[in-house]
Design a binder for these strands. Structure first.
Lengths: 146, 146
DNA sequence: TATTGTTATACTCTATAACTATA
DNA sequence: TATAGTTATAGAGTATAACAATA
């Protein structure tokens, strides 16, 4: 638990954090490496790559979107042949969403492009700044999940 | 300039960064402390608090949005009495956007609420993680501006 | 009766294109 | 002719509410 007696410092930090996250997310939306996939779709594929497979409800909770939104996202991914929907073995209300092999190939390809884009953007950072950001990336993910 | 021979590490970091930024931005949109202000409006007020005043065009460039979007954002802020629009002293095509006193009061109030929200969320982080995030906040902002 | 997922609908935010006024 | 800002319009993404099927 952070020491919140340093309220002023924390307030400045959270200000910068919020502002930076919002602005960066806006740029990420537009400078995305794969034109055919929205950030939300990309994020779901990333989650599936980590988890293996999940139900739409689980995905909605993990991605912090409402179930109807996840229905739409999963449907789009299925149309593009990137996920497969199968009946749940124990509960016939639920479905199981699984990543296809095509998604794995696409993610690998996308990873290469992303590095190129990152290299260009990170060219404006010095080594220390980049190290700071690399250390913060997993914490940011954790924070987003809390 | 980062050493990009560590491509695999960098790829993992940017993955986590992108994913974390997108998810966190989605949560920030909904868990915002002031219900009457969108994240974009909030961000513009933050910029104005730092810069003093600016023209709509300058704000659009700084926030990485197109001019028509900034027109709308500024109009909403004016409706809420948070900014004032004045004619530019030298160029009659331009306008000058200035923060009102009401905005300053609101920002101060908002800062308190934000701390409360942050304290709750940050409760799930340990001291090191929080320190990492605090160090990364300004770098994130810089990255968003590059 | 509660829960999972879907359908129907509306809202918010942003962008592009076309326009006005000024430089 | 170029630039600052606005208006009109369209598109993407998400949410809420109502509904169907299953537990």
């Amino acid at each position: 638990m952070p020491d919140l007696s340093r309220a002023a410092e924390d307030a400045a930090a959270v200000n910068a954090l919020r502002s930076g996250v919002m602005r960066l997310s806006r740029r990420l939306k537009h400078q995305r490496v794969d034109e055919s996939l929205s950030p939300a779709e990309m994020s779901v594929l990333g989650t599936l790559a980590r988890c293996g497979s999940a139900t739409p409800g689980e995905l909605a909770r993990k991605e912090h979107v409402q179930p109807p939104s996840m229905t739409r996202i999963v449907a789009l991914l299925e149309t593009k042949g990137l996920v497969r929907l199968e009946p749940h073995p124990e509960d016939r209300r639920q479905k199981v969403v699984t990543q296809t092999e095509r998604a794995e190939v696409m993610l690998e390809e996308s990873r290469r492009k992303r590095n190129a884009w990152l290299a260009e953007l990170a060219g404006g950072l010095d080594e220390d700044e980049w190290a700071t950001l690399r250390a913060a990336a997993p914490v940011l993910e954790k924070l987003a999940h809390l």
